[in-house]
């Protein structure tokens, strides 16, 4: 364990360079640059609120509800997609110099997380617009919500990155799965609609929904059931452990398939 920590420490500069690369290249040659990470979720939220608010009837917190789901799902989707490609994308480096390969999925999740953290700023104008302000007794739920989200995303990315080295289909398959996950996140429909039907278990099995629920609970002001904390945490940690073991077992073979 000590050995791993020491080697990780020697890679901090490389990790920061890789994270920087992700952030820089994402918005390179665009006029608004990093502002897009604010403008993009804002614009999609407006569209979603108009369409689905009209369909389902709009409550006071609906814009905030849609936006928080959209932001968290957006991070999960962007980070796992880039994590999935991370090892392949860096093939030319892997073929030349030995560095610990876990840095590639790790850095792609981290740079997406930083962009996501910046994009969270758009929550403020939406809160003001809805006239809803986070209350102290609920807002702490942000921390376990975001932490579980990060662990889960890392775990899924490491698994995908490993698989994608051996089978390129994973990239395309994951796009389809992401769409299914999106519908199971209750982003733009009121969650009660699904909870009252016979399909509630589907939502409860989605660890991402737990994270979104905690985030919403923190902002809109309600206490999330303990089940969601526990389930999304355990799911995330188990995925991460499986992913790391799998990655470690297979990483020496990567080079033969790139």
């Amino acid at each position: 364990m000590k050995k791993y920590l020491k080697s990780f420490k020697s890679y901090t500069f490389l990790l920061s360079e890789l994270v920087k690369r992700g952030i820089r290249l994402k918005y390179r040659r665009s006029y608004l640059g990093i502002l897009w990470s604010l403008a993009e979720p804002l614009m999609t939220t407006i569209v979603l609120v108009i369409v689905f608010g009209t369909l389902f009837g709009r409550s006071r917190e609906f814009p905030l509800y849609v936006m928080s789901g959209k932001l968290l799902y957006g991070f999960f989707s962007a980070a796992t997609k880039s994590g999935c490609k991370s090892v392949r994308r860096n093939a030319s480096m892997i073929k030349k110099v030995y560095v610990a390969k876990y840095l590639y999925p790790l850095s792609s999740v981290l740079f997406n997380f930083i962009i996501f953290a910046i994009s969270l700023l758009v929550i403020i104008p939406v809160c003001i617009y809805c006239g809803i302000f986070p209350q102290l007794q609920y807002v702490w739920q942000l921390i376990p919500g975001l932490l579980n989200l990060l662990i889960l995303t890392l775990g899924v990315s490491v698994v995908l990155a490993t698989l994608n080295v051996f089978f390129r289909d994973i990239e395309y398959l994951w796009n389809v799965l992401l769409m299914i996950i999106m519908y199971l996140c209750a982003i733009f429909y009121p969650v009660e609609r699904l909870m009252d039907s016979g399909w509630a278990w589907l939502l409860n099995l989605n660890p991402l929904y737990g994270c979104i629920d905690m985030f919403r609970g923190a902002l809109i002001g309600y206490q999330v059931e303990f089940y969601y904390f526990a389930y999304s945490f355990i799911f995330g940690v188990v995925t991460l452990i499986i992913g790391l073991v799998f990655f470690k077992a297979k990483q020496d073979e990567f080079i033969l398939h790139l």
Partner: peptide, 16 residues
């Protein structure tokens, strides 16, 4: 997509 300057740093970091 990186400039020469940025590549010197990235590549250097990879080389340790």
């Amino acid at each position: 997509q990186y400039t020469a300057r940025e590549n010197v740093y990235l590549y250097g970091a990879i080389l340790g």
